[in-house]
Nucleic acid binder design. Structure first.
Length: 362
DNA sequence: TAACCGTGGAA
DNA sequence: TTTCCAAGGTT
């Protein structure tokens, strides 16, 4: 029983010329002409972009990538930064464990590797926040290693090329084996980026542009099935609804009472306004138990926010207080500087619900 | 292994 | 409006 195979040399011959013509120009990339002259992207830039791009769109990452390079031009600069400043700069990008691990990784590179990123997959993967994908990507793109780079784009391309019927995530080891066989020794970094560009622009989740695809003569799904139905995926479960309350206190100088969340877990290490736990209960009786201090709390509506594994509905309460007294666990932050705080989106929504002009220009 | 962990844009 | 999901990692 012989299985369907595509030679790495054939894959390279089809994909690399396509990449030379149709690659995306991205801020963290070295263009193919430069790459063929032996110019390699800065490992710090590659690593920073790859971490930011985990489960995040290119469009969302661009502005953050520029901001981080402006604030911390080298990995040593980032290693020396205050974690709090890193969290503030990351605010809004999501998955905040990435920011905490980014800082830890920079420190490890500085301390354990003399400020230079290791150039092998194995040693890269030993660093915080670097898993299978990111280790392979940095090794291939920044160090020209022939590593098997498998991300969501590549999974989709591979699943269609070989018409893989097994659903994700169970099929992932099989896909890793296939991409390892398919990756050429020639220009492995460009090959990896080409696979991802192909998945992002041609071999898209919906309505793939198969007529423009360089792999068209080799794609089993195109010839034997419907490419759009790949990759097969296990059914996902629905998100439960959780309820909670948030308290927005404003003093006479228009400062808001904020506090820091625990370092781990949901929105770990980020800033918040005080509030209740977020539970599935509909019990309003305990709401005021969570007030940061006694005040004339007025209900001012609710905000909804969708997290990865649940939906949240927050009842928002507002109180105007005479003076900024308490400060037991938090601090008073002027409205003017709220936008530079480490506030996750759900907290900005809650504050904006209580103070509509809080995040206005100026 | 499966649950946990954000956000915003597109269709 | 709802659904999907984007260059995943950690526990």
């Amino acid at each position: 029983m012989t299985r369907y195979t595509i030679a790495a040399s054939e894959a390279a011959a089809l994909l690399l010329p396509w990449y030379d013509r149709h690659h995306r120009d991205l801020p963290w990339r070295v263009s193919p002409p430069m790459a063929r002259q032996g110019i390699v992207a800065d490992p710090y830039h590659v690593w920073l972009s790859e971490v930011m791009l985990q489960q995040t769109t290119v469009q969302a990452v661009k502005a953050y990538f520029d901001k981080f390079l402006r604030l911390w031009p080298t990995v040593e600069d980032l290693a020396s930064a205050e974690t709090e400043d890193v969290m503030k700069a990351w605010a809004g990008l999501g998955y905040y464990a990435r920011a905490r691990n980014l800082k830890k990784c920079a420190e490890a590179v500085s301390r354990e590797h003399g400020g230079r990123f290791p150039d092998t997959e194995e040693r890269l993967k030993a660093l915080p926040g670097i898993g299978d994908y990111t280790a392979a990507a940095v090794a291939a793109i920044a160090f020209n290693r022939r590593s098997a780079v498998l991300d969501g784009n590549v999974e989709r391309v591979i699943s269609r090329l070989y018409a893989i019927e097994a659903p994700l995530p169970a099929a992932k080891p099989r896909m890793r084996q296939l991409i390892a066989e398919l990756t050429p020794a020639e220009r492995p970094g460009d090959f990896a980026q080409a696979m991802m560009d192909l998945g992002a622009t041609i071999c898209t989740p919906k309505r793939p542009a198969c007529s423009l695809c360089p792999f068209r003569p080799k794609c089993l799904a195109l010839h034997n099935a419907d490419p759009e139905t790949f990759p097969r995926k296990a059914a996902k479960k629905e998100k439960p609804l959780r309820l909670g309350a948030a308290f927005v206190a404003i003093d006479q100088a228009e400062a808001v009472y904020l506090r820091k969340r625990p370092e781990t877990g949901l929105l770990g290490g980020m800033t918040e306004v005080p509030g209740t736990d977020w539970t599935a209960r509909r019990d309003g009786a305990t709401t005021l138990d969570a007030q940061p201090f006694a005040a004339a709390w007025q209900p001012c509506g609710a905000v909804s926010h969708v997290f990865t594994h649940f939906e949240l509905r927050l009842s928002v309460y507002r109180a105007n207080v005479i003076a900024a007294l308490p400060g037991v666990e938090g601090w008073w932050e002027p409205i003017a500087s709220l936008k530079t705080q480490a506030l996750p989106t759900v907290m900005k929504k809650a504050i904006a619900q209580a103070i509509p002009h809080a995040f206005n220009q100026g």
